[in-house]
Amino acid sequence: MSQKIRSLSVNEPLKSTQLDPKFKYEVAKEPGGEGLGYCFQCGKCTATCPIRRVESIYKPRQILRAALLGLREIVLSSDVIWLCATCFSCTERCPQGVKLADVMRAIRNIAVREGYIHPFFQAQGKMISEIGRIFEDDEFINEQRADLGLPPVPIVNLEEFKKILDSTKIKELLASKGSK
């Protein structure tokens, strides 16, 4: 990925008109978002996050803070909400029992409904729906597998797979809303 990742784009000072106090309720209503309010901003999540170690703009604490304050558009349109790898280190260590990975998923679900989706996820989705995988298999991989005594990558039954995918309506979701 060569694309630049954008952090929360906040111009100071934030005006009260930019705050949507209802956003916290919206997140809390989304499955997984319930514990958002308990966050008391200790920062253990950010300090423990392995993504943060390789990508310094990813700060889970800051995302939760912005969500609690009601920076709805800023949070939903940001790239950083897509960086969570759901390793659950934060969830494991949060002293207030906030399930951060779940909260992050809840925020992403709202973002998708609102038409925000990161191009990388869009590309992945497209890939899956077309070939049933998130990346193309090639001869090189099969050669490597052969060296290990493994059979070639199994062929996906695309017809079956597409039926399943269609039932999830992921295609429509990606096609119609992925442009923002």
């Binding site: 906040v10 100071e12 705050l19 800051q62 803070r65």
Partner: peptide
């Protein structure tokens, strides 16, 4: 200055 966000915020 919201210390947790690290930003200035104006509340009404």
């Amino acid at each position: 200055h919201d210390q947790c966000l690290g930003k200035l915020v104006e509340f009404e």
